[in-house]
Structure formats: C-alpha cells, structure tokens
Design a protein around this nucleic acid. Structure first.
Lengths: 191, 191
DNA sequence: CGCGACGTTGATTTGCCTCAACGATTGTGG
DNA sequence: CCACAATCGTTGAGGCAAATCAACGTCGCG
C-alpha cells in the first residue's frame, strides 16, 4: 500500500481520513508469470496498480502480431480504459511477465470513490493528462525517428524496465522485428 | 456557445446555473488563416474550443519535418496540455488552416472552474480518457498497418475533416511522404 | 501577371522485413 | 536430475515498402 500512497499523493494531497477511504476498496491480487489479468475480448472488470512484478499491455493485430502498448512495473497502473469504463469487450490483453501483485479496484467501487472523494476525480484527470502527453510524444517519435533512435530513446527513458525484458518484448514495443533489433544492438555495441 | 454546450453536456449533465458559471470565463478569439494560436517554444496561455474553422496541431522534428498530431475543426479542443498545465515552453505549434473562431480559457480561470464546479473536473477527466484511448489506437495502427491502410482508415474515420485539408497535410498526419501518398491515391482511384 | 505552394510522376536508394538456419538458454515433465 | 522441447538471440540472403531526389504542369493569391 505504501507504493500506492506515494503514487497518489504525488498527484493530489490527501488527509489521513481521505487516504483511508481511498485505499479501502482496493483488493490485492497475485498473478503468476504468464498469467493474464485481461484477455482480448473479455470485459475489463478491474483496474489495477502494480505493487510488484511486471506486465505487458498489448494488442494482437489482424496479422497475428502482438504490439505492446506499454510495460508496467511497480508504480504503474494497468487496465483497458475503454473496456473498463464502457464495459465492452477489450481490445487489449494484459499478461504478467513475472510473478506479480496488483491492487485492483472494480468499476463500481471506483465510481463510488469519485462520488465520495472529489479529489479522486482530480487524481485520475491528472494521470490521464500525463498519459496523453506521453502518448503524443510516442506518436511523434514513431513518425520521425529511425528504429535505432527509438531503441536508444527507450533504454534511456526506462532503463530499469528494459533490463527485465527480453529483446523480443522490446522489439514488440518499438514496433520493429526482433531480428532487426538484434542487428541494431550489435551495431551499437561496436562503439 | 451552442456547440460548446453540446460538447460539454455530451459528457456531463449541467444545470442552467452550472452552465452559466462554466461558460463565463471563455473568451472568443478569432484567427485568420495561417495565424498561430501557439508556437513551439512559447508558453501555452490558453486552451480553446474550436467554434469555427480548422487548426493543425503539430511538432517540428529535429530534421525539420512537421508532424501533425491532429487536426481540429468545430467541436474539438486545442492546446498543448504539457505547456498549459506546467507553464513550460511548448513543444507543439498550433496554426489556423482557415479563418477560425476559438473559445479560449486561461489556466487560472480553468483552475477556478475546477474548484467551483466539481463536474468540470469530471468533464476533463472523461475527455482525457477518451484521448488516451484514441492515441493508443493510433500508436497500434502506426505499428501494424501499411501507409495505404492508414490512409483508408483516416478518410473513413474523419471524412468531413479530410475534405478540408491538402494532401500534404494528410501525409504529415499519417507520417508518410506526400509523394508516396500521391501514389497511394492514384492506386486507389484505379479501382 | 508572376510567384509560391501544390499534386503528380519517374528513377533510384534505403531502412526494415521476411525467411531460414544455428547455437545458447530456459523451462518442464518424466 | 536429466532429457527434451520451447524460446531465445544472432546472423545472412534476399525482397519490398516507402523515402529521397528531381522535374514538371497547375492553381490560387497578391
């Protein structure tokens, strides 16, 4: 819970009482490596805060390839917003890459929180805005940069995540083939 | 103002009184074709709701190319969230592609609105979440689809926007060269 | 009228993908 | 605990989608 508290108070300030109300509906779930929190086609019943471990959030394209939207380690939130808020089939899958722990909250509990604690509304507004900024940057990067630049950017931005991933996973995030990533890595190491 | 009201009540319900409080701080500004609402490096002082006209929101990459994040016609919001909320130099430029009208709100007025009307917090949370979903889709599309597919998707999704743009602008949105887009259009027209 | 931005087309180049093969590592069931 | 399978990272050959470069006619605007 400490990590969650830090994550929340990083965005809004809460009194002890507010924090107690906030934490209350969260339920700790564990996932073994390779287990799924969500599979494409299911309805996303929970949003979660990763307390321990690592997940990949990805989409399976029409050609069968898996494209990673993001990796979530401790301190990240996971879920399929569209599926969760509208209770429609998910287009995303979420799988544990390590044995993991997630603090989960249901749609109903989250909506109750919005009503009880106006600050929660603000919290998720701020978090959403940050994600918009990050996603916009990613769109621009993908349009303007070479595969090598994308790779160097990613390992510079998320060094602590990269070291927990296989090269194939990183390639699926960058949107390049793993063979080509291997060649990029070779080229870089020769400097 | 009618269009703004429609846009807002599409996401949250407001009483007459709440609507009056909401609309109050917005100021109508006009922009002539090619005029800038924001230039890279400036601080974004206003967020705006496009009442009439058309804008391009774009970033200038290190190689000098202009990459379009989105086009905003009537009913869209424009601004550089990062620059606006943190009052830091913008990485985006926003330029009118037609003579336009924008309902603008300053950072201070917006923050006041958040405090006076909790529903505004909800409004912008919901809008931000929708943008996250749209941006995630775009990231996946750019990773998994060919230039031709991207083009067909765009004209199918935003037909009323495309017809107001030059081919070059569309290419700058798709992230492909305008020459290649020309070849794609030729190929498509031969069917 | 003249200039600049536009759309088009062709020739050439290139960044990245695909396919195939290999050894190394990891995981797993017997 | 070992043997086998699965997954991984690497490398090379060949191919293709899209970029680049260059030239040209058209159009709208000042």
């Amino acid at each position: 819970m400490e990590l969650l508290k830090k994550n929340v108070t990083n965005n809004v300030s809460l009194s002890d009482d507010e924090w107690q109300k906030f934490r209350q509906p969260f339920e700790l779930k564990t996932f073994k490596k390779k287990e799924f929190l969500l599979r494409e086609g299911e309805i996303c019943r929970f949003e979660g805060f990763v307390n321990k471990g690592c997940f990949r959030v990805y989409h399976i394209g029409s050609k069968g390839f898996e494209h990673v939207l993001y990796f979530a380690i401790e301190g990240w939130w996971i879920g399929d917003i569209d599926s969760f808020t509208n209770q429609i089939p998910a287009q995303l899958s979420i799988q544990a890459l390590e044995d993991s722990e997630v603090l989960c909250i249901s749609k109903k509990d989250k909506e109750d929180l919005y009503d009880v604690l106006p600050k929660v509304e603000r919290l998720f507004r701020i978090m959403s805005q940050k994600r918009v900024v990050a996603l916009q940057r990613r769109v621009i990067s993908k349009m303007s940069k070479s595969a090598e630049e994308l790779y160097l950017d990613y390992i510079a931005t998320y060094p602590q995540i990269v070291q927990r991933l296989t090269s194939r996973q990183v390639a699926a995030y960058l949107g390049i083939s793993h063979e080509f990533l291997s060649k990029i890595r070779k080229k870089i190491s020769k400097k």
